[in-house]
Design a protein around this nucleic acid. Structure first.
Lengths: 213, 213, 213, 213
DNA sequence: CATGAATGAGTGTTCATTCAT
DNA sequence: GATGAATGAACACTCATTCAT
């Protein structure tokens, strides 16, 4: 869609010149970083995977750190887009989150979690880059928070800080994603994990009886 | 005067002051690894921090990977010990966990979380080393699981898999530890985070009313 | 003035003068390895001798072992070429070998012998590398063997295994090369050594009279 | 025999104090150096093999180089002794050398040859150490030379320089020792190699007929 | 637009050697 | 007589980065 029409009036979106190479690099880099972590991925490997040379990568991105930043931001935008799509459905939040959970826990082979990769990279990044990434992240969190906030207003969930819900949800998702793909994955199938996890999420640990007391 | 002397080879004059060198290295290494991650910590830096040379580190530990393994196992054992101590109190589990949460969220400057550091190191470790560490980790999880299992038997918490409770608790603890020491730490004080978090943990998101319906 | 400039990274200005860097490295390496043996030659020294940095050597050769292999194979090929040239002359084999002997004993300063250097390197090489080198070596031996085989057919030399002649010849050449350049080189001049050696080679130790008996 | 009587008049042989440790080290070191070469053998390994610590090795020998020198000299003396024993037999030289050849080619698994190991070590040795070793070597050569000289006097072998015979013999022995234990050892059994080699040694390459012409 | 060739600053690791006990 | 603890100087190898083409 984007590359279908060539000349439109007005300033073109800055980087529409040559999507192919620059963007292919970004995509490959994102995959690699998420799969192996910041330090383990060398610029050379990114280049080889894209079938270009290291110098080409540097032609487009000033440093490994900025390649990382760009690729993570890109990835985040993608995720945010998908998130928004699912969250915009008219179904109850409960159902929507359950769906997201199911999807997340079933896909993504060896992927490390976002927070982890970011934390590893932080010491190599400039403050601006860190900011750019935190903003991406924050965007995601705020979208989710927003939904919780709405639910609170509607009296459907207890009035804790919406960001607490958002963080808790994301953390649990990531942690159990790892478990679901880790050592004991066979003993505890992903679908069941997803169900149990959401059960816990909505109802907590306490038994109703003990609450009465 | 103090720094004028170059280190000379040979056995240093008996000192008998504090811990053995081997153990000092272990402790320093554990701190550094937890603060900066596996890759960022160089053997040289560990050595300098201990005021010995790199070769001394290698005198005690065969490789960076085995130093890492040893230091993490040691750290885990310490944590397990402290955990056991707190968990052995006769107070209700709820109170004991609240206490642990308070402690964890209030201490430990920039520490990365255990899972994160481990995952980063994995590609550099031998299978035996990975096993050793996973075992350490597993030990901690099983201790906590055990407590949840007992609570289930007593009918105090809902009958979900005990390991789910354990993982969820640990993950939330780590995630909010990071938040509590991250950017917005001032807006949301650690004590309050701890309270909110445990509230969520015990009662979940659902409002009681919505459950009725 | 010349040495005032620090080497800067990046591609050097086109020069087009002499051989490619890769080949210069190979040649220098071959010389050094033959002069000092595998272990004593450091990659750093090879680099300095070529006026490039260590990293440049690694740009062309994946490891010290593979640099060694490549340089030895190259050297062997050169030797084989020269050998073939001399051996292709229509003169009697006796004269051709005498010529080779003269040449070998008079040249090549402190060079260690091939077999020696190889044996030292073997523990550091991969099986494939060892094979590549043994093949190079075998080629030389078989070329010489071939000549002896022809002489046997013509009835000019006694029918011992051709490879025995080849090995014996090469071994003696190397051993006396060392002597001719060793301690007592002045007392026993190279030309005379060559003559005596070939005399022994063709006629052996036995006095004709003692054979009769 | 040496350690059978304890106190005899006269100065005791210098190092008779504690033969056990110092000499055990020497023996083990000799074996290792001959099997693996100078550089590959670490002082630590020598120590471990002797079940003492590195420091103990240094207690007896000032440096790796001097340990090497001492162990090689010792080894040489042993060889010289054995050589002398065999050479002192009243049998014809031809038979005596054939015997030595048989023995040498059949024994000594992976042993590198003496010359090789020495050459590798030379750059690490002091001039005095090199001298000591060359002297040991020279002793062996001169013993063999002496026998050839006698044979020349008796008119049994042709009047070439005796040292040429000695060097040629030793070189061939070492070279074919390597072959006899190298890759093609099965195709060409040691006993046959020994026979062929000595045939060549005594009679050379030339066929008798071609000599006539 | 893209690259080949080169660098510099590490990084883990080894090893001969030393010295107080 | 023997050793445990420590060092320093290398060394092989890696990787992000640069620059002329």
């Amino acid at each position: 869609m984007q590359s279908a029409w060539k000349k439109t009036p007005g300033r073109p979106p800055a980087n529409s010149q040559d999507q192919s190479t620059a963007d292919r690099i970004l995509q490959v880099a994102a995959d690699l970083f998420m799969a192996q972590g910041y330090e383990k991925v060398t610029v050379d490997v990114v280049a080889k995977e894209c079938q270009v040379t290291k110098a080409t990568v540097y032609y487009y991105y000033a440093s490994k750190a900025s390649l990382f930043t760009a690729s993570v931001v890109r990835l985040m935008n993608e995720i945010v887009t998908r998130m928004k799509m699912i969250l915009s459905s008219p179904k109850p939040l409960r159902d929507r989150l359950n769906l997201i959970t199911q999807i997340r826990l079933q896909t993504g082979g060896t992927q490390l979690d976002f927070e982890m990769v970011m934390n590893e990279a932080v010491p190599s990044l400039t403050p601006e880059q860190i900011r750019a990434m935190r903003d991406s992240e924050e965007l995601l969190t705020s979208i989710i928070s927003e939904e919780f906030a709405k639910e609170i207003e509607r009296g459907r969930i207890r009035p804790l800080p919406p960001r607490l819900y958002a963080h808790a949800y994301v953390s649990l998702l990531n942690a159990f994603h790892a478990k679901a793909h880790g050592e004991h994955r066979d003993e505890w199938p992903a679908t069941q994990v997803a169900k149990d996890l959401m059960d816990f999420f909505w109802s907590g640990a306490d038994s109703p009886l003990s609450v009465v007391e």
